[in-house]
């Protein structure tokens, strides 16, 4: 089933066109990797899916983005509910300057959950789901900054999971992590796709090959090729895709 669908999606900042008509379908419970050289529009694409680009001054978004068949740029859409449904993990771990517990409880509270027991349960569940519980269960009320970078990134993932999203957007989530932490994050992504639809932007081609079911190659704002990952990496149809995957340019 198609979870996210874009139709001729075009995004401009001022008079600079970043995305030049992207049409793609993202199936439910799959991991889609977006690869491409720096500045090709990967992050911009990701951020149109939860309308984080709305904050950018002079942004113009044309074309359509559907999630569960609903146009998310339609007038009647509640953007706060949209972002609850489409969670995000950022490039650099960005926990709030609060305790580990509060980092996760915050998302629940802003969506109106007040019951303490309920919050406790969901904080624990989110931390378990993000493979972080065992490491932090004895220091839930310590500052989130006492955690390592990799733990912080899993905390940010837990924070996104706690509010029951359906889609998770990850913007180069491992780019600030060491190899071991990266490995753990990749395992986490593998596990999460059973319940969530995940879109990962990555500049690490091997990572895309390891974790994704589908891979999209973006180049200069255009979707060059989009296919099952094993096909993309063994028999790409486009010459540019092949060159990029082979590391001929970046």
């Amino acid at each position: 089933m198609v979870k996210v669908k874009t139709e001729n999606l075009m995004v401009s900042f001022g008079n600079k066109r970043i995305l030049k008509g992207i049409s793609m379908e993202i199936p439910e419970n799959s991991v889609v990797a977006i690869i491409g050289p720096s500045g090709c529009g990967k992050s911009t694409f990701l951020r149109t899916l939860n309308r984080m680009n709305d904050f950018v001054k002079g942004v113009k978004i044309e074309g359509k983005v559907y999630i569960d068949g609903k146009d998310i740029y339609a007038k009647d859409v509640n953007v706060f509910d949209l972002r609850k449904k489409v969670g995000m993990v950022f490039q650099k771990p960005n926990p709030f300057p609060k305790s580990i517990y509060e980092n996760i409880a915050y998302g629940l509270r802003i969506h109106g959950i007040k019951d303490k027991r309920m919050i406790q349960e969901r904080v624990e569940r989110a931390l378990r789901d993000a493979n972080l519980w065992e490491e932090v269960k004895d220091k839930l009320f310590e500052s989130a900054f006492s955690l390592s970078g990799g733990q912080q990134q899993r905390l940010c993932t837990a924070r996104a999971l706690a509010i029951n999203p359906e889609v998770i957007l990850m913007d180069e989530p491992a780019s600030a992590l060491d190899p071991i932490a990266t490995n753990r994050l990749e395992h986490l992504i593998e596990k999460l796709k059973k319940e969530y639809t995940i879109v990962v932007v990555t500049h690490n081609i091997q990572q895309a090959a390891r974790i994704s079911d589908y891979t999209a190659f973006l180049y200069m704002g255009e979707l060059v090729e989009y296919d099952r990952t094993e096909i993309m990496f063994t028999a790409p149809k486009n010459k540019r895709t092949e060159e990029y995957i082979m590391g001929k340019f970046s």
Binding site: N50, M52, F55, F80, D81, L82, R83, K84, G87, M88, F90, K92, N94, P95, F96, P97, Y106, G107, I110, H111, C156, R159, A160, I163
Partner: peptide, 12 residues
């Protein structure tokens, strides 16, 4: 990044 994280969770 703090503001982004908060908006990303659907905060007003």
């Amino acid at each position: 990044s703090f503001r982004e994280a908060s908006f990303g969770l659907g905060a007003t």
